[in-house]
């Protein structure tokens, strides 16, 4: 190779590298698609029929918990909030939200536990416990079909911005960011699995691989472990910030809770 050709080759390589690392542009709003679009026929049928969607088992448990008196206050969720079909409609579509009491953004699980501690005077549920997932699924179910509507609260802006930074920041031994898969390479395949855009439209989801219901935070931890990064602890501000960014990124998309994913 002549010196001239060598320099041309080096320049071309530099352009390719720059293009690969620049990336990370937001997906145009009209090109966004829910993970449901990538489901196989059987899994989609399972999700869309309540009597075959395994998450229904949690939704029904959540309904029972909603009406069950708990804690020192001996009060049920329904004693304050009444019929969830009316009072909880749209709630899951606007979390994480800024809590004036906690002075920090909190997600739906934390909101439920906050109510449980303050109003019911009961011990908060552990993250990923059957009870917390059941109540979250039940509350989430009331927003099915509604558009995701993150609050336009000034106090939440910092969390959304922090979430965006985390989303585009390389992490772990594999040194990849969320955006490299879910913004730049969605629709392609990672081994045999389609790479989704990663919109949190159906959480908590029944994941067939887990044979269980799981929260968005569990799913995020899953991805981080895949990147050989140390996952954020459940309820960590970073995890909530990432959730807040993902909800902002999915604004206007339809809530499908509870979703089924492979």
């Amino acid at each position: 190779m002549s010196r001239h050709r060598l320099r041309e080759f080096a320049c071309a390589l530099a352009v390719v590298v720059a293009a690969a690392s620049a990336g990370a542009t937001d997906i145009p709003l009209d090109q966004r698609r829910s993970g449901t679009a990538d489901l196989g026929r059987d899994t989609k049928a399972m999700q869309n029929d309540d009597t075959s969607n395994p998450a229904t088992l949690w939704v029904l448990d959540g309904e029972a918990l909603w009406n069950q008196k708990a804690g020192a206050a001996h009060r049920a969720c329904s004693d304050c909030h009444g019929d969830a079909a009316a009072s909880m409609k749209g709630v899951a579509a606007r979390y994480p939200a800024f809590s004036a009491v906690q002075k920090t953004p909190i997600d739906l699980e934390q909101r439920i536990n906050l109510c449980r501690g303050e109003q019911q005077k009961a011990t908060p549920f552990a993250f990923e416990s059957r009870e917390l997932l059941a109540l979250t699924a039940f509350v989430g179910r009331q927003s099915r079909g509604l558009p995701i509507a993150p609050p336009s609260d000034e106090n939440l802006k910092a969390a959304v911005e922090q979430g965006r930074k985390l989303f585009t920041q390389r992490m772990g031994q594999i040194d990849m960011s969320c955006a490299q898969c879910h913004d730049d390479n969605w629709g392609k395949h990672l081994a045999s699995s389609p790479v989704p855009q990663g919109h949190p439209t159906g959480y908590p989801i029944y994941r067939l691989e887990w044979q269980n219901l799981g929260s968005l935070q569990r799913r995020l931890r899953n991805c981080m472990i895949g990147m050989r990064a140390e996952p954020f602890a459940y309820g960590a501000p970073e995890a909530v910030a990432l959730e807040a960014y993902l909800m902002w990124r999915a604004r206007g998309m339809t809530v499908e809770t509870p979703g089924v994913r492979p």
């Binding site: 009597t51 229904t56 088992l57 029904l60 448990d61 029972a64």
Partner: peptide, 8 residues
């Protein structure tokens, strides 16, 4: 909290 669901 096991409970069955049947659809007929």
């Amino acid at each position: 909290m096991a409970r069955p669901l049947v659809n007929v």
